[in-house]
Design a binder for these strands. Sequence first.
RNA 1: GGGCCCUUAGCUCAGCUGGUUCAGAGCACCUGCCUUACAAGCAGGGGGUCACUGGUUCGAACCCAGUAGGGCCCACCA
Length: 878
Amino acid sequence: MEKMTKYSPSEIEAQWYTYWMDHNFFASTPDHRTPYTIVIPPPNVTGVLHMGHMLNNTIQDVLIRKARLQGYNACWVPGTDHASIATEAKVVAKLKEQGIAKQDLSREEFLEHAWAWKNKYGGVILEQLKKLGCSCDWDRTAFTMDPKMSESVIKVFVDLYNKGLIYRGNRMVNWDPEALTTLSDEEVIYEERQGLLYYISYAISGTDATLTIATTRPETIFGDTAICIHPEDERFTHLHGKKAIVPICGREIPIVLDPYVDMEFGTGCLKVTPAHDVNDKALGEKHGLEIIDIFNANASLNANALQYEGLDRFEARKQVAKDLDLGGFLIKTEPHLNKVGTSERTKAVIEPRLSDQWFLKMEELAKPALKAVLEDQEIHLFPKKFENTYRHWMENIRDWNISRQLWWGQQIPAFYYGPTKEDFVVAETAEKALSLAQEKSGNKNLSLADLKQDEDALDTWFSSWLWPMSVFNGVLEPENEEIQYYYPTNDLVTGPDILFFWVARMIVAGYEYRDTKPFTNVYFTGLVRDKQRRKMSKSLGNSPDALKLIKDYGADGVRVGLLLSAAAGNDLMFDEALCQQGKNFANKIWNGFNLIQSWEVADIPQPEAAKIAIEWYREVFNKTLLEIEDHFSKYRISDALMAIYKLLWDDYSSWLLELVKPPYQQPVDRETKNQLLHLLENNLKILHPFMPFLSEDLWQKMAVRSPEEALIVSTWPKSAKEVNNALLSDFETAQQIVSGVRTIRKEKQIPNKEVLDLFQFSETETSHTMNAVVEKLANLNPVQQTQAPVAGALSFRVASVEYFVPIAGAIDVSAEIKKVTDELHYTQGFLKSVEKKLANERFVSNAPEKVLAMEKKKQSDALAKIETLKQSLVYLKG
RNA sequence: GGGCCCUUAGCUCAGCUGGUUCAGAGCACCUGCCUUACAAGCAGGGGGUCACUGGUUCGAACCCAGUAGGGCCCACCA
């Protein structure tokens, strides 16, 4: 027989996404409702969907869909980030393939290529998010280099400059010799690398003596402008005031004294290279040393390195070491573990380099942002542990290097009009700059042609830190309706890796420009790793193809798979098996739906079992709903999903549906079917945020619905605060009885078809409200009461009540005796421990009332149980 | 070098203010079943010295100290 027992997601997913889009269900405009806003962490325009995005955006979609159901005006703003360094690198690579070098292009020409590239590939990742089911308001799709966004960025730059917070300085910066730009401190990743410590001998001028320094970078000797020793180092007092001679180049350099030098490290003598090390720069300034830069921009050596000019720095290191050795200057080398800074983007080893850069003073700006999170609790971080990290960074915040030697990005609005580096003005436009320049220079004859704009672009994060404001045009028009309505946003869902890059800075910008937080809750997802705990990366090839996953398991299945493994802030081990679990779950629900649909309806009375089951399920549903809401309030998204999973699989499918199921090929009563459909509707509502496609599909299949009645815009069920615990507990007892009978069936291999008897042994009358449930699920004749144990019957106990199932010839008396005896001994032992506790005066006097009462109940229960066990033994032994 | 966090079943993880929701969940596993929605399933079942050592307490997975292992963040030691 052909049966439709398989759910195939791919067919319906596209259909429902189109339906939602066609009816503008994702769109939001300000209205009388309370807004619920999320701004997407804008992925790089160069990006393709990876597992991190999938997780991140699934969580956002769950939150936004739930809010929408709850009646909020849900607004999820999508967009992309221009990612200056990553994108520029891609465009440069692409041009290179076409035989075009960046240097051969003008800034304008290059930007044309970049925009063409962006327009062609920039939307890919957003299209992929649609496949995942993300219900973003696509009409609001923003890009960090949109005209208004860029204008906002420039406005903020000018404003901060005018406030005296932006300055230009010649500073040691992190230079990426591959991307040919500076990086902020946060973009530098330190790695431990095994290297060598070279001991190099320097002659002392005018004497036969020498001194030995230890360095990891022998190639930098050409930049040496001093040797530094500790003033109190008694080994070197004879060197005070002397000069040393740099090997190979023979230059004479002073020997200076400074307590900075660690006498314990190396030889106690330090060579000073102010152009290529932050500390050396400080020493240089202190002692008035010369600065000799020996590197080109690509980190090859320049003319200052004499015959090594043009050599790459690592090649030069080998060569210089070799030559030093030949010349007798290299005393020895020893292995040395040192930390090497590398570029987050290009992986190139960072070269500390002195250059003119723009900086933003952070100290004052950070203060309100620090207070808001830690003191005022205006913003909550989930998990909370990130508050420590946040505090540490904000309290030790350093100035932000915001200039990049790139073209792709907002060009710094500083205009030079004169011969010196200080002859510049900062303004939104060249026209404004001109009048400022005329004023500043006193030269009214300056024209636009005399102005030269700074070549650098701004750090990408200098635009994304405004994102929650700028997507609502809140920077240019701070009073506009949209920003007033949607801001502050509600939740931000992102990875902890950009806590400093982005999250902290958005908070800073929010307080500076709107005097309030940009969002209330920040949910940090973990890193997605593979089963072996390795970080997912392109180079390892361990990152599954997101679209293929969706194709194989359905978007709903993948969403469930990701969420099931994702506790907030913990890394998650992604395993495709979880997507399979998600897909199985979808199929389970789909089948249950088909089952109900297949039943004929008749006007017949409602069976008792169905009536009880439905009442019970209402309670379970309500209880679960309360749990789910509690989970959501703590951002425990996976726990919320698991609660729904168990509700639908166990309570709904295994218990409720089994109980209401009509006998084979017979109709169901109208009452039951109607009630069931209502329960199903509620199930679909709470399922919808997690599995939007399946839930909408079934919702639409169960009734003819107008667009206004679509599930996506329906209402989240209301929970009753009262839970009928008596009903729940009675039902649970019934479940245990059913389970007891099933265990006996299993042990004695009695088929389910065979109808059995069940005796409830009880001296007093007990309630029978659940008998119909037990009889239906365990396939029993009406449950009978008995005043005495049933001889020759198998038995089990639920709570302290004993049940008997008579089975002809199946009973092994001696085995039963052993079973009961074992249980008796165990219970006696248990009683003993309880009584010992109760006999302990200190326990009785210290333990709270509640605990004491509990112990006493344990005692009386155990005593009662021992009685029935003893009686059983008597009967068994005949 | 400074700071933060983690270690509970084979795996991934819950476990709130110390006490019957304290030893849990999902998956995996084992044993029966192609049973009348679903084998992508049903029913039943076995798994843990709560990292280790001490302490506090009537009582510790939970609090304290130490040890071992793992992770994260920050920091310029040549």
